[in-house]
């Protein structure tokens, strides 16, 4: 099963994502913002990163950019957890190098289906 990094400043969302993925057998590391996510990624190799867009300290867009600047994260899928009202954000995320997005709200089943999709 995959090693997944879940990044969200909302403890409830993060908890929900981590809980769901762990339930499906994945190994999940949690981070509160982009900065902490990058720190986690420097000591661990993740197969997938799931990140909220709007976070304090370092938001999801800046985080994706920073991940893509690391050679070892060039092709690693990074999914943005975003809302429908945020079309521009999706595009901004894509421009920064995000793989795709998961539209909030999502339920555990949708989360798992999308994760399965990117992990191939």
């Amino acid at each position: 099963m995959a090693k997944i990094l879940a990044v969200d400043d909302s403890a409830s969302m993060r908890g929900m994502v981590a809980f769901t993925l762990r339930g499906a057998g994945h190994e999940v590391t949690e981070a509160e913002n982009g900065q902490l996510a990058l720190e986690a990624a420097s000591t661990d190799a993740f197969d997938l990163v799931l990140a909220d867009v709007n976070m304090p300290v370092m938001d999801g867009i800046a985080m994706v950019r920073a991940f893509r600047a690391k050679p070892e994260y060039q092709g690693v899928p990074i999914l943005m957890l975003t809302t429908e009202s945020n079309t521009e954000k999706k595009m901004e995320g894509k421009a920064a190098g995000a793989t795709g997005w998961l539209v909030k709200p999502f339920d555990p089943e949708q989360l798992l289906a999308t994760v399965k999709r990117v992990l191939g």
Binding site: D9, T83, F106
Partner: peptide
């Protein structure tokens, strides 16, 4: 950010 988080969470839960 505050509104966004609440919205996302509320919808999810």
């Amino acid at each position: 950010r505050a509104a966004h988080s609440i919205k996302g969470g509320a919808a999810t839960f």
